[in-house]
Design a protein around this nucleic acid. Sequence first.
DNA 1: TAGTCTAGAGAATGGTCATTCTCACCGCTA
DNA 2: TAGCGGTGAGAATGACCATTCTCTAGACTA
Lengths: 217, 217
Amino acid sequence: MSLTTAAQEALRGQLLDAAERVFYARGIQAVNMSEVRAAADLPMRRVYQLFPSKDDMVVAFLRRRHDCMMSAIEDYVADLPAPQERVLAIFDYLDEWFHEPDFRGCPWMNAYGELGPTNAPVAAEVHHHQQAFRALITGIVTAAGYTAGVANAVYLLVEGAVATAAVQHSADPAGEARHGAELLLTNDRSRAPRPGTRSGRPAGKPDAPTTRVRSAR
Amino acid sequence: MSLTTAAQEALRGQLLDAAERVFYARGIQAVNMSEVRAAADLPMRRVYQLFPSKDDMVVAFLRRRHDCMMSAIEDYVADLPAPQERVLAIFDYLDEWFHEPDFRGCPWMNAYGELGPTNAPVAAEVHHHQQAFRALITGIVTAAGYTAGVANAVYLLVEGAVATAAVQHSADPAGEARHGAELLLTNDRSRAPRPGTRSGRPAGKPDAPTTRVRSAR
DNA sequence: TAGTCTAGAGAATGGTCATTCTCACCGCTA
DNA sequence: TAGCGGTGAGAATGACCATTCTCTAGACTA
């Protein structure tokens, strides 16, 4: 036997960490396998033992990042009691993300732009991510009692903010989208929760201002 | 003299037509210069006479398409008298675009995903497009008397709809974004134009339903 | 008609890249 | 110690591609 399953998993994680770093920073097609190999500090032989092709590695990178992002948002929102705050916290999450120094847009949209038309597995992975991500967002909004129309609009605000922040190298779209969402939420006739009621976060996270995006970094 | 300026311009147009077709359909990096040459039905020598490099051709393709899209939206909106209708017509334009059989998302976001980190001129062109496009959208909204916050949100809805429609291969996001915009517009306290007043398009374009996206094709 | 210029068609060049292969070596068993 | 399965390091392979070059032929001048 060459390698225990646990050791394989550790190496796979090490490789995906490196791949994610270089692919996200510089683009998938702009990075060759030698660079991935070097970034992961693994021999080429091992790289192809862990993933039979670059495409497989790309799909795995996208999937792992998807899982990571989904649970991060769930956690971010989980301990907020007020439904409207839960919705707005999505945009606070975006604001923190946009402030990360190596933020470079949506990994899935980037991959779609690069490989969408020529690489069916990658396109399918992007499609899957977007559907699941959308379901997560709209789930948070509708669970707070708002209409499906509001939920759709909140989701589109999120997507628009990510695309805009990437190209403009600015975190402002998070706040702008948050403001748009506030307008949608406070005016929704089907529910119209009054703002200001039931505010405050439980211990473990600092207070977030109600009307403004929390600053990160 | 090798070629008159007018003839050069005609050939340049012929080449950009072809380049736009193949680049947009299959991605910039996935298409090689021989394919562009073949699609334009021009000898290779001529291609490099018209654009000194593939990068130059890509930038020119993006710029021409930008000019085209900007004036198309201006025209689309121009003859609508009611301010709120002018805003919503943006989404009708999107709906028609999304219904085109070869719609494949935002050419600029696609190019940014492909080349953004490695190709500064392309990144600059995308940046420029997004700023100008945003100014156009927010100009239409604020000229209709709405707040800057509403204008920002409308713009983000547009960007989100384009990204979502591309990946999901669906035109629905146009209608969803339109609905979100309607919620924003009809509830904007700073202006609150009553819906239903001053409706109807002038001759030359068919009537658009007020609450639903106009079907294209 | 001889000379010169330019164009078209496509091959050659030089470089890159994903993937595979070689080879010397290590740890283990008998 | 001889044999064996697997390893690291990196070179070789085969394909692709942007860009340039060659060769042939037509158009135009004198």
